[in-house]
C-alpha cells in the first residue's frame, strides 16, 4: 500500500518537474486546425475547443494542483500545530479562547466559509491559500492539543520541568515531537480535501484563472462542450482522482505503520 501510494505521488512530482519535457505540446498553444479532436496517437487525450492538447494541459496541471495541495496543507499545519501546542500546554483561558474560536470555525460548512472569505479577497490562487490558512488550521490544532494534554502529564515531561527547562523548550522539543505522529497521518487525508477544494473553487471560477491549465478549470472550460467532446472532461478529472488516491493510500499505510487510528 505504501509503495503504491508513494509511487503515485512520486510519479506526479516527477511529472510536475518534468512538465516541459513530458508534455508533447505547449499547454496553451491553440491549434486552429485541430479543434475538438477525439483521442488519437497524435493527441492521446484529444484536443479542446481551442485546439489545445489535453494531455499536455493535464501534465502541466500537475504543477499547479500539486502546488495547491502542498501549500494548502503546509500553512494550516504550521498554524494549527503552534495553536494546538499552546492551547494544550497552557490550558486555562488560552485554551478556552482557542477552543471557542475552533467551535465557531467548525460550525460553518468548510467550503461555505472558504467561499465567504474568497468573496472578500477576490478570486485567485493567493486568496485560496489565505482562506485555506484561516480555515484549515482548526483540525490540526484539535489533534495536537488532544495529544499535548495527554503528554504533558507523563513522566518525561514532568522530569523536563523539574530539570528547570524553559517552557518553550519543553513544548517544542519534548512534547511536540511526540504529538506529531497523528497529524502527519492526517496531513495525507487533508491533502485530498485541500486538492478537491482547490479544484472545486477553481471550477467555480474563484480560484486559479484560465488560461492556466489547472484540472478544475479544465473541467469547467469543458462543460460547454460536453455534448461533443467527453475527453476534455474525463482526463483532468481522472488526474485528480489518481493523485487523491495516492494521498489516501499513503495516509492509510502511514497510519498502519505508526499505529495511529484515525
Amino acid at each position: 500500500m505504501l509503495v503504491a501510494g508513494v509511487g503515485i505521488l512520486a510519479a506526479f512530482v516527477i511529472l510536475a518537474f518534468m512538465a516541459p519535457y513530458a508534455a508533447p505540446y505547449d499547454p496553451i498553444f491553440q491549434d486552429g486546425t485541430a479543434r475538438l479532436m477525439a483521442p488519437s496517437p497524435a493527441h492521446p487525450f484529444g484536443t479542446d475547443n481551442f485546439g489545445r492538447d489535453v494531455l499536455s494541459r493535464v501534465v502541466w496541471g500537475a504543477r499547479i494542483d500539486l502546488q495547491m495541495a502542498v501549500i494548502g496543507v503546509v500553512f494550516p499545519f504550521l498554524i494549527g500545530t503552534v495553536v494546538g501546542t499552546l492551547a494544550g500546554f497552557f490550558g486555562g483561558w488560552v485554551d478556552v479562547m482557542f477552543m471557542r474560536i475552533i467551535d465557531v470555525v467548525l460550525a460553518f460548512p468548510f467550503l461555505v466559509l472558504m467561499l465567504s472569505i474568497i468573496s472578500i479577497l477576490g478570486p485567485g490562487l493567493s486568496s485560496f491559500y489565505i482562506a485555506m490558512a484561516l480555515v484549515g488550521w482548526v483540525s490540526y490544532a484539535r489533534l495536537i492539543r488532544a495529544q499535548i494534554l495527554v503528554l504533558k502529564t507523563q513522566d518525561f515531561a514532568v522530569a523536563a520541568a523539574s530539570l528547570g527547562f524553559s517552557r518553550t523548550r519543553i513544548m517544542f522539543r519534548h512534547l511536540l515531537p511526540n504529538a506529531l505522529a497523528g497529524s502527519l497521518v492526517f496531513v495525507m487525508s487533508d491533502a485530498v480535501l485541500v486538492l478537491l477544494s482547490g479544484a472545486s473553487i477553481s471550477y467555480l471560477g474563484l480560484g486559479v484563472q484560465p488560461p492556466l491549465a489547472e484540472w478544475g478549470v479544465m473541467v469547467a472550460e469543458a462543460q460547454g462542450f460536453m455534448t461533443q467532446a467527453w475527453w476534455i472532461t474525463l482526463f483532468p478529472g481522472l488526474a485528480i482522482v489518481v493523485l487523491a488516491f495516492g494521498f489516501s493510500l499513503t495516509g492509510d499505510a502511514l497510519a498502519d505503520l505508526m499505529g495511529v487510528r484515525e
Binding site: 478537491l196 469547467a220 478529472g237 482522482v241 487523491a244
Partner: peptide
C-alpha cells in the same frame, strides 16, 4: 473519497 463532485456530475 477523492472523486471531485464537479467532475463526477459532469461525467
Amino acid at each position: 473519497i477523492g472523486f471531485p463532485s464537479f467532475w463526477l456530475g459532469a461525467m
